[in-house]
């Protein structure tokens, strides 16, 4: 054996360990829970991780010891031809069974804590997965939005989860478990966040071309802020007065926008695409593919494929003037 590759290997390993040292643990979402459900999973995960690490250290320690101790040396005699030991077989069958039984008890307990029963109450929120965006409906207030869920802090909200086309998966790592959104099979999920903030969510089941940009955000607010947001969402936008925006409104109604989208107060009332009623208030565009501002909105309308290639939003080959007018209109719908 040559020593050269060994040295190369060691040096690379040291570089790798160096990278971990400067690493900030707070960027690991699944280890920074902000809900009781997610916290229960994190506790179980850390516990199991410790057990697994101990087993790994034990096995690799035994292997490394064997490598060092029993390496063939010149002049050593023929090893004893030992073919087994029932005691040892019993030991390494029984101990893992015991360990796994313990892990199982905690698994069963944590399952209840991490995924509480739905109970008999009706859902608060309907979330529908579409290729490649999330439709969000507040069933009590009637607010409809997309790719953004607002929650009051510390309140458990029951989500009814459905899918319009293929299977998607609703996952906010800091808030708890992921669960599939399946066509023809309704799932329910309790969502709760104990700290105000913005938590990022994503579709975790491969759902086609733009699976990567099916992100969403959970915006957790104080109860007052949340109520204010909800009231603002319920307002029906007034027709604009400014001429460019007015031209935009006319275009919006004449073009095929209305065949797929909904915009309260207009004849647009479809759900094939995201609701546009208060589009200007949203943080992101196109399932997280771009930050929402007038420039990106204009780019999006001009050529959707440049921001999210393969999305179902068609390129209408709009003129720059048309794009400006549409953006002006959509920006007034706050």
């Amino acid at each position: 054996m040559t020593t050269h590759p060994t040295r190369t290997a060691l040096r690379l390993l040291f570089d790798f360990v160096g990278a971990i040292e400067v690493f900030n643990l707070s960027s690991i979402d699944t280890l920074n829970p902000v809900s009781p459900q997610a916290a229960a999973i994190t506790r179980l995960f850390l516990g199991v991780l410790v057990i697994l690490a101990v087993i790994f250290v034990l096995v690799s320690g035994l292997v490394v010891y064997a490598i060092v101790r029993y390496r063939e040396r010149p002049g050593s005699s023929m090893p004893r031809q030992l073919a087994g030991s029932r005691k040892l077989e019993f030991l390494w069958t029984a101990v893992p069974i015991g360990l796994l039984a313990t892990v199982f008890v905690f698994t069963a307990k944590t399952m209840r804590a991490a995924n509480p029963k739905k109970g008999t109450r009706p859902a608060d929120l309907l979330v529908v997965g579409h290729q490649w965006w999330w439709e969000v409906k507040y069933l009590k207030s009637g607010v409809i939005t997309a790719n953004e869920i607002h929650l009051p802090v510390g309140k458990a909200v029951l989500i009814q989860l459905e899918a319009a086309d293929v299977i998607h998966d609703f996952w906010v790592p800091q808030l708890g478990r992921k669960i599939d959104a399946i066509p023809g099979h309704t799932n329910y999920l309790w969502l709760r966040a104990d700290r105000p903030g913005v938590y990022s969510g994503i579709c975790a089941e491969f759902c086609g071309t733009e699976h990567a940009w099916m992100r969403f955000e959970v915006v957790v607010q104080s109860p007052e802020e949340f109520t204010a947001w909800e009231q603002a969402q319920l307002k029906i936008p007034q027709p604009p007065s400014e001429p460019e925006a007015l031209a935009g409104m006319k275009l919006f109604n004449e073009l095929t926008c209305v065949n797929c989208h909904r915009l309260a107060g207009t004849r647009a009332n479809q759900t094939a695409g995201p609701d546009l009623t208060h589009l200007a208030q949203r943080r992101m565009l196109a399932g997280g593919a771009a930050v929402n501002n007038p420039q990106t909105l204009a780019e999006w309308l001009k050529d959707p494929d440049r921001i999210k290639p393969g999305s179902n939003m068609p390129n209408f080959h709009l003129s720059d003037a048309q794009v400006r007018a549409l953006v002006a209109y959509l920006e007034t719908t706050k």
Binding site: T30, F45, L49, L52, T107, D169, E205
Partner: peptide, 17 residues
């Protein structure tokens, strides 16, 4: 060993896919 963590259902709920 990482496979065992997928048998622990709640961990799977977080880390699968």
């Amino acid at each position: 060993l990482s496979g065992v963590s997928f048998a622990v259902v709640p961990i799977d709920w977080q880390l699968t896919d």
